[in-house]
């Protein structure tokens, strides 16, 4: 970002002209839907209203007060935060570790690793979740067969169910982190590492003081991406715990929104949950960016 010195007026106009197409696309694809989302969240907007069978009622913040007063919403919210945090950490650790591994092994091993990772990445979420369910099936699953625990239901207990789903989420999202970080490591000029070595830096010191700072922008991107993805997990929970687990104990925010609002045709309430989620994600992202900036990173 060029800060601290102003651009000449003519340049500003030219810049605006160049940016206009992008702004139009962004406006159409993001601003308008968000505007509609906020708007709908202020109404009692159900199927009756959509198809014209009943009049629209303006509720103001009614949907919001109803949602925030719902005890289950708070339980689900904290559950979602914990679940997403676990998944983000898991994804980053696995992705980063395998990225480093990929730079250290022979070509054939790397190719194999990449093929496996791309396979996981390319698997559609519904198919992936279903395959994992087969593997962990109580009576016929391969995992129980190998462990000799036939009959043990992985999806019954709250924590094994969450653990299983988190493992699946990590499995299908680590390849993005791995590929991105691998590319980042490869792009670091060899001279820099050599210079550090000539100065007598240890491997750990090189990693911490040379590689990590250079990779920082990439780590930033993959972290924010992961936070957003894992906070919005729907398919894995919906498929693997059949819609939120026993008595809803494995619900996360997106599935909760679907069950309470969209399946029940309460679009107004659903939009409210959507607005709250968007606001939360923005807050998390801004907070993360600020924390980074404080630690001296210019973005």
């Amino acid at each position: 970002m060029a800060r601290g010195h102003r651009l000449p007026r003519g340049d500003g106009r030219a810049a605006l002209a160049y940016l206009t197409p992008a702004l139009l696309v962004l406006g159409g694809l993001m601003a308008y839907p968000i505007y509609q989302l906020v708007l709908i969240s202020l109404f009692d907007y159900g199927q009756e209203q959509v198809s014209g069978g009943a009049p629209l009622v303006f509720l103001g913040l009614g949907n919001y007060t109803e949602l925030l007063a719902d005890k289950q919403f708070w339980t689900v919210l904290w559950q979602t935060v914990g679940f997403a945090a676990t998944c983000v950490v898991g994804t980053l650790v696995v992705g980063a570790a395998l990225a480093v591994l990929a730079t250290r092994v022979r070509t054939w091993a790397r190719t194999l690793l990449f093929l496996a990772a791309l396979g996981a990445w390319a698997t559609p979420a519904v198919a992936g979740s279903t395959i994992w369910l087969f593997l962990f099936d109580a009576n016929f699953g391969l995992v129980n067969e190998v462990l000799g625990s036939t009959g043990f239901s992985w999806t019954f207990d709250r924590w094994t169910a969450f653990g299983l789903v988190a493992a699946q989420v990590v499995w299908c999202s680590f390849p993005f982190v791995m590929v991105t970080l691998y590319a980042g490591i490869k792009a670091i000029p060899q001279e820099v590492v050599e210079a550090a070595a000539l100065d007598g830096a240890s491997t750990v010191r090189t990693a911490r003081s040379v590689l990590l700072p250079l990779l920082r922008p990439l780590i930033l991107v993959v972290t924010i991406q992961s936070v957003i993805w894992d906070f919005k997990v729907f398919t894995q929970i919906y498929v693997m715990t059949s819609g939120g687990g026993i008595a809803g104990r494995n619900l996360v925010l997106n599935v909760y929104a679907y069950q309470q609002a969209f399946a029940a045709s309460e679009y107004g309430l659903g939009a409210t949950i959507g607005v709250v989620m968007t606001a939360l994600l923005l807050l998390i992202t801004i907070g993360y960016l600020r924390a980074l900036r404080k630690s001296g990173e210019e973005l």
Binding site: Q36, L39, Q49, S51, L56
Partner: peptide, 14 residues
């Protein structure tokens, strides 16, 4: 103004 003037889309109904 935009908020007050608009309402979510509804169909005229069957």
């Amino acid at each position: 103004v935009a908020l007050a003037a608009c309402a979510p889309v509804t169909s005229s109904g069957p």
